[in-house]
Design a protein around this nucleic acid. Structure first.
Length: 447
RNA sequence: GUGGGUAUAGCGUAGCUGGUUAACGCGUCAGUUUGUGGCACUGAAGACCGAGAGUUCGAAUCUCUCUACCCACCCCA
């Protein structure tokens, strides 16, 4: 009896070769834009000490309370009692690495970005996976609202480069710990007389996190929340001017936004600015990019206060939005030349030529199956080879072969199989690329 | 954790008033006279019809249980 096939864990995804171009497209966009804004790539462990996430994300948050994949090291590993957790987000690890490597001593602001996978034990649905991929940026060492505007602008640039439409930017300020405390009290005072009408989860929100009362989707609760006090009215002077400045800079950069006092975010470390880029094209999990300022986090982790901010962008959600909107992805490069063969001597020559071409960076393939000439040509067509050449006894004898352009209709050109094969072929390849880009005419004119 | 939906070859589907070897398209592989692709044609491989029980002479088709996946709540990227 065959054992049942083992399947991928719930909430994970394979990316098969035919889909890889989508990932390559978004990763290229994301990296290019991050670098354009002066951010440097950083890498850090996939798992960290559990305490790092508990302390930064917050021990009352859903992420920490019920969504972390944690293991406790056993005696066997010699680390008995140490608990490790697969990272549920990127900010905590980045900040830990920043502090641990002394980067805050190197000139501020530190501007970092990363492309990572994150893990949360949630029930999967559209745009939500247990292992998901995130592009993130973090800027540390400035409390200036220009930094907030820059970070938001980077997010906007990426979404624009990806060709996304109908993305709304929501911004809000949730203030510093002082003004937030006052606001939370005001919220409790407001909701208290309505509590008996409200849903169960809102009751626990009332106790644990009153800000969450604002975005309950139940009809009654949201109706009550409609007239609730607004945080912006409770901001202290500093937080208020910070927010006003941010809006001014965003406007100056031509970035449209909506002030949405309802966006709150569920990670404890946020202060002042919070924002989300939201799409309506990917189901209920519409936040493609979300982030904000977390001025207290570094101080909490290291003892040395340092303002910082950043965002995370869900790459699956980004790709999903692009797919649903019919956005363009970059084409993958295909085989440059397929060198087919007949007979043992031809096959050997084909292998030799392939090796030479590959040393020059040419994508060259030859038959490794032992197929008929016809079948080899079919294969060359299927893999999208730009050129093909067939080598048999007669070609070896004459020293020349027919180089066929697989896309064009022109007659095959003669090409010698000698030492200049590589350079001659490269010239053909470049000419073809220029033609494809419509530059051949311009080049002729230049010459 | 709570709801709803779906489960037939690699993919997409048909078959669902129970009845012989489960069909079709795409894809894959091979071939269509001697050494050249894209079209067309021929053929082949590939499914114990999600799993397990039950009803029945007989079930992919009816009943029950389970599992997986999808969608939504919650929360977030």
């Amino acid at each position: 009896m065959a054992q049942p096939m083992i399947q991928k864990p719930n909430g994970t995804r394979d990316v098969i070769p035919s889909q890889m171009y989508k990932w390559n497209t978004v990763e290229a966009i994301v990296k290019a834009q991050a670098e354009a804004y002066g951010f440097k790539e950083i890498r850090f462990p996939t798992f960290e000490d559990t305490g790092l996430f508990v302390r930064s994300v917050g021990d009352t948050t859903d992420v920490v309370q019920k969504e972390m994949y944690s293991v406790t090291a056993t005696e066997r590993t010699g680390e008995q009692g140490t608990s490790y957790t697969l990272r549920p987000e990127g900010t905590a690890g980045t900040m830990r690495a920043l502090i641990e490597n002394g980067l805050l001593n190197e000139g501020l602001p530190q501007k970092l970005f990363y492309v990572i996978s994150c893990f949360r034990h949630e029930k999967p649905q559209a745009g939500r996976l247990r292992e998901f991929h995130q592009f993130g940026v973090e800027m540390a060492g400035t409390q200036d609202p220009r930094a907030d505007a820059e970070v938001i602008a980077l997010g906007k640039s990426i979404l624009d480069m990806a060709g996304l439409k109908n993305i709304t930017l929501n911004i809000n300020s949730i203030g510093c710990p002082e003004c937030r405390a006052k606001y939370q009290q005001a919220l409790r005072d407001y909701f208290k007389p309505h509590l008996d009408k409200m849903c169960d989860t809102c009751h626990s929100r009332y106790e644990k996190n009153p800000l969450r009362l604002l975005d309950c989707k139940s009809e009654i609760c949201s109706e009550i929340a409609g007239d609730a006090p607004v945080i912006l009215d409770y901001l202290c002077e500093e937080c208020g001017t910070h927010f006003e400045s941010l809006k001014k800079y965003l406007t100056a950069m031509g970035i449209e936004f909506t002030v949405n006092p309802r966006i709150v975010r569920g990670l404890d470390y946020y202060t002042k600015t919070v924002f989300e880029f939201i799409s309506n094209d990917i189901g209920s999990q519409g936040t493609v990019c979300g982030g904000g300022r977390y001025d207290g986090l570094i101080g909490q982790l290291s003892g040395k206060p340092c303002p910082a901010l950043g965002f995370g962008m869900g790459l699956e959600r980004l790709i999903l939005t692009m797919e649903n909107q019919g956005a363009d992805f970059a084409d993958e490069e295909t085989c440059d030349i397929y060198i087919g063969s007949m007979g043992e001597a031809g096959a050997v020559k084909a292998m030799q030529l392939c090796r030479e071409l590959r040393a020059d960076g040419v994508r060259a393939e030859c038959d490794v199956v032992g197929r008929s000439v016809r079948a080899q040509m079919k294969y060359a067509d299927k893999i999208g080879a730009k050129f093909s050449v067939m080598i048999g006894d007669s070609e070896l004898e004459s020293g020349t072969a027919k180089l066929k352009d697989m896309q064009g209709k022109s007659e095959p050109a003669d090409i010698t199989l000698g030492e200049d094969f590589g350079s001659v072929f490269n010239a053909m390849l470049i000419a073809k690329q220029l033609e494809a880009e419509g530059l051949d005419g311009a080049l002729t004119e230049l010459l």
